[in-house]
Design a protein around this nucleic acid. Structure first.
Lengths: 146, 146
DNA sequence: ATCGTTATTGCAACTAGTTGCAATAACGAT
DNA sequence: ATCGTTATTGCAACTAGTTGCAATAACGAT
């Protein structure tokens, strides 16, 4: 049976190159347990690759996101954050307290299927952020104190 | 019966102030038929309000988005764009050709209800962008020319 | 109509992110 | 192991977006 290519082999096959910069950035994201901002990533990776520039970090993050190895999220407050694309999931962010909760990809699967039926579009991103109010903030608000 | 407040009256009641800057920015977004970038907005509004600064535009857009009068979208390519919150809708963007399609809010309604059941979160944003491949690009790719 | 409170603005200095271009270095072919 | 092609990097100059602070001006109260 044919050997299953790793993402990295696949990239090389597409003509992209596996530079130390790219590998190191990906590694940092893999180790991290949550989202990292470009600056946080730069600060970590520059320790291993002293010549690294921020331009390269931004370019690499865009590249990795386009290739699907990394997920981008816009968790309010403007800035984008990045995360290793380990398992498909999304975020629910409370507009009030900032509390965040992960939601499983399967909950969106159904929706994607609907899109496919209705429009012919085949969705493959995989990382959405929804804003709303968490149960606690709803409760506090409803009690109407003051 | 009680008079129904407009969004603007409501803002004033919250202690926010209706400055000419805010009104003009909102007006430009209302007139525009699609998404505008902060810079596009600035260029239009500065004509009416010569002293206007870009800082004010960014602050106002954040403010209007938080208040729900304006929708923010992240249509790939990093930059955020803004749009008057006229009707709830979302976007489907083709990763390949950039083609864009609106999808009605009601398609997501069901999903929001599920979130509420499962997590207690009450979703209220209302503007998501999904990335995938449009029917045409899927067809072209599948034909395997080349 | 005037006044006081204080949210909002403009300013200026900053941080975040992008881009064109020449130099570098992956990587397939020899 | 060496070479050539060309994707990627670093550099530097840029554009985009943010923030603290003093001055301004909305707006409710008189």
């Amino acid at each position: 049976m044919a050997k299953r290519y790793s993402d990295l082999d696949w990239l090389r096959e597409q003509g992209y190159r596996l530079t130390p910069q790219r590998l190191a950035i990906l590694e940092v994201l893999k180790q991290a347990d949550g989202h990292l901002s470009p600056t946080e990533i730069f600060n970590q990776v520059v320790q291993e690759i002293p010549g690294l520039t921020e331009a390269t970090v931004y370019r690499t993050l865009n590249f990795l996101a386009e290739q699907g190895l990394v997920l981008v999220a816009h968790l309010g407050r403007g800035q984008l954050v990045y995360e290793f694309a380990e398992h498909d999931h999304h975020h629910l962010v409370c507009r009030n307290c900032g509390e965040m909760q992960e939601i499983d990809h399967r909950q969106l699967k159904q929706l994607y299927d609907n899109f496919l039926d209705d429009t012919g579009y085949q969705i493959n991103t995989i990382h959405a952020t929804f804003f709303g109010f968490c149960p606690e903030c709803i409760a506090n608000n409803r009690s109407g104190s003051k």
